[in-house]
């Protein structure tokens, strides 16, 4: 008889991919009210947070009020300011039949603004943090009762908001000038995102389950809660000392990136920019 006296334990690891299961939780829905323009979300609470009195899973409702009940337009201007800077300025207007005031203007993917400081490191002192953030806020021109800031994470965006979201902003049928800044970078076309006041979106409990079938649609709604318009923003950094070949190459690269990242830009922009794209 073969006597087993040795037992060897070897491990071979094969990762198995978890299948993405989309749950069709009965009764969940997103319904647009054509009169108000709001969405009623009906969902099964993923987890009842808190009081044990509400522990049982239950079908919940919440309302998403889009911040897109605006009719925005933006006019961009730029001019040479001194020898090295371009002065950018913007006027925002809101259509007469808009239901919300415009309370947010965001310029996407901008090059550096004159006076802009790097976001301080987490090890920075309170004074260093304040100096950097205040410098960024001060680098932006803002209309009366508006304030701007520069936000940077994976990308940089410049954002203005009124001091009071409830009562401020660009109301229907009105226009607001006075947004601007200086930048050494040349202009290109990017997005100006504008939004209305909307409403603070809340969930009773913990919200939708991760595998809820309506989550992708709700994500699409909440993450695109703005209206975009093309605007001239600083995108092409000019080398110092000036080098025409490098500048042209940056313009070329900038255009390529822009069209990769902004497929939703109106077709007329894409066409005109492509026609004028220089070859370095």
């Amino acid at each position: 008889m073969n006597t087993l006296t040795k037992f060897r334990w070897s491990i071979g690891i094969v990762t198995m991919l978890a299948s993405l299961i989309v749950q069709a939780y009965p009764g969940e829905s997103i319904v647009l009210d054509p009169v108000t323009g709001n969405y009623t979300i009906t969902y099964w609470d993923d987890v009842t947070y808190g009081d044990t009195a509400f522990e049982q899973p239950s079908l919940r409702h919440t309302t998403f009020v889009p911040a897109t009940k605006i009719i925005p337009a933006i006019r961009s201007k730029f001019r040479l300011n001194g020898a090295n800077d371009v002065a950018y300025s913007y006027t925002v207007s809101n259509g007469a039949s808009a239901k919300q005031a415009i309370v947010g203007l965001s310029l996407e993917q901008t090059a550096r603004v004159k006076g802009e400081r790097d976001f301080p490191a987490i090890t920075a002192t309170a004074d260093e943090v304040e100096q950097a953030i205040f410098a960024n806020m001060s680098a932006l021109d803002s209309p009366e009762n508006w304030g701007g800031n520069i936000y940077s994470a994976r990308q940089t965006r410049i954002v203005w908001r009124p001091d009071d979201l409830e009562t401020g902003g660009v109301k229907a049928g009105r226009a607001q000038a006075g947004f601007g800044f200086l930048s050494p970078a040349l202009p290109g076309v990017s997005e100006a995102r504008m939004e209305g006041i909307g409403a603070v979106f809340g969930y009773a409990g913990d919200g939708l389950a991760m595998d809820s079938a309506i989550r992708p649609e709700l994500d699409r709604l909440t993450k695109n809660d703005f209206i975009a318009r093309p605007a001239a923003v600083p995108t092409i950094a000019v080398p110092t000392p000036f080098d025409p070949a490098v500048t042209l190459e940056r313009i070329q690269t900038g255009l390529a990136c822009r069209f990769l990242m902004r497929p939703s830009l109106p077709s007329w922009i894409a066409t005109s920019r492509l026609r004028s794209a220089p070859t370095a």
Binding site: H61, T62, R154, L165, G207
Partner: peptide, 26 residues
């Protein structure tokens, strides 16, 4: 709105609301 300025971060309000007192605004 400030939170959303950081690359699409999202701030939602969560709260406890008894069933039947809906839709909640939180």
């Amino acid at each position: 709105k400030m939170a959303a300025s950081y690359d699409g971060a999202v701030a939602q309000v969560h709260c406890t609301v008894a069933p039947g007192r809906e839709p909640p605004s939180c």
